[in-house]
Amino acid sequence: MLYNEPDFVGVKSQLKLACEARGFCAIFFPKFHCELNFIEQCWGYSKRIYHKLPMSSKEVDLKRNVLQSLDLVPLLAICRFSTRSLRFMDAYIKGLDGKQAAWASKKYHGHQTLPETIMRDLTDAGLVSNIH
């Protein structure tokens, strides 16, 4: 609640200020929205690989397994995760809710963005009662 107060809303975080001072643009995704952050999807892929590797309690083995599991995430998968995230962002920009965005992302999985006819398509699919 504190972060929604007017005197907090306009204040930049120390991390954002440090990034901007070095010429970087810091973009923060909403918490708990892993579909918007393809890095989270890459981590999930890597974790699945990691759990298939032999268990060990030795630090050297753990480090090797982590690096190996990160290296085994294919570039094609990273690109697909990125495209999927872009589709979800586009869906939310177009006013879709979570259920509609998931449906649209699955239906238009070969597209980077959703078509302008998305609201009509949702109506035809019974996911929306009227077109806005």
Rank of each mutant, 00 (worst) to 15 (best):
L17R: 15
Y3D: 14
G98L: 09
R64W: 01
T123D: 01
E116C: 08
Q100G: 01
G44Q: 05
R48N: 11
R22A: 15
T123H: 12
N37T: 06
G10P: 02
A101H: 00
S105L: 00
L86M: 10
L86Q: 11
G110V: 04
N4D: 13
T83E: 03
R64H: 05
Y108D: 03
V73R: 12
L122I: 03
Q68S: 09
A21I: 10
H33W: 08
Y92I: 02
M119C: 05
D7V: 09
M55K: 13
L76A: 15
C25I: 12
L72I: 02
E20V: 07
A102L: 14
K31F: 09
Q14R: 12
W103K: 02
T123Y: 14
R80L: 06
P74G: 04
H132S: 13
G110E: 12
H111P: 01
K12Q: 11
A18V: 09
F32T: 02
A21P: 04
M1F: 15
P30R: 13
L62F: 10
G95T: 04
F32W: 09
I131R: 13
C79V: 10
G110Q: 08
P115A: 09
E20N: 13
P54N: 04
E40G: 06
S57T: 12
S82H: 13
H33Q: 12
M55P: 03
H51N: 09
L2Y: 15
E5L: 15
K94G: 02
T117I: 11
L75I: 13
Y92F: 15
S13C: 09
M119K: 10
G44D: 09
A18C: 09
S105W: 00
L17F: 04
E59G: 05
R64G: 00
T83Y: 09
H51C: 03
P6S: 05
N130W: 10
G126L: 02
